[in-house]
């Protein structure tokens, strides 16, 4: 298991055009030896889930700064379950209020990383969790 690269989809659902954070993280994961599939801005949950399945990723990272996370994140989880792909680890990042986090985790998002998180923290989290599966 150790010599296979972890595959991560970094996706931006919703309509905001702020992809700096997603790109910084994609680059950091690349430098940590992961294969990062980056799909660009304004992805629908359907596109994200379909891409995650075709690319057989271990992790889907959702980045959002538009405030629509309470709708879009659970929708991604719902579609993954419909497709029998709920084993893919889903994490989220962006400007997400503390108060929203419990409900998102309830919906199946494994972890939410808010502003100030180091890329190293995300790398360690992914490595630890991806090795368990």
């Amino acid at each position: 298991m150790t010599d296979r690269p972890i595959r991560v989809l970094i996706a931006k659902p919703g309509l905001d055009g702020h992809d700096r954070g997603a790109k910084v993280l994609a680059r950091a994961l690349r430098d940590a030896g992961m294969e990062v599939i980056y799909t660009g801005l304004r992805q629908t949950p359907e596109q994200i889930v379909e891409t995650g399945i075709q690319e057989d990723v271990d992790v889907i990272g959702l980045s959002i700064l538009s405030g629509a996370h309470n709708h879009l994140f659970p929708r991604v989880m719902e579609l993954l379950r419909e497709k029998g792909a709920e084993d893919i680890l889903v994490i989220g990042g962006g400007i997400i209020p503390e108060d929203d986090i419990p409900a998102l985790k309830e919906a199946g998002i494994a972890e939410i990383f808010t502003p100030g998180t180091t890329t190293q923290a995300v790398i360690e989290y992914i490595k630890e969790r991806a090795q368990q599966s």
Partner: peptide
């Protein structure tokens, strides 16, 4: 150097 990669071709095929 790291074995990592950014696979970004799908951006053009959304």
């Amino acid at each position: 150097f790291t074995g990592g990669a950014i696979l970004g071709d799908r951006i053009r095929m959304q």
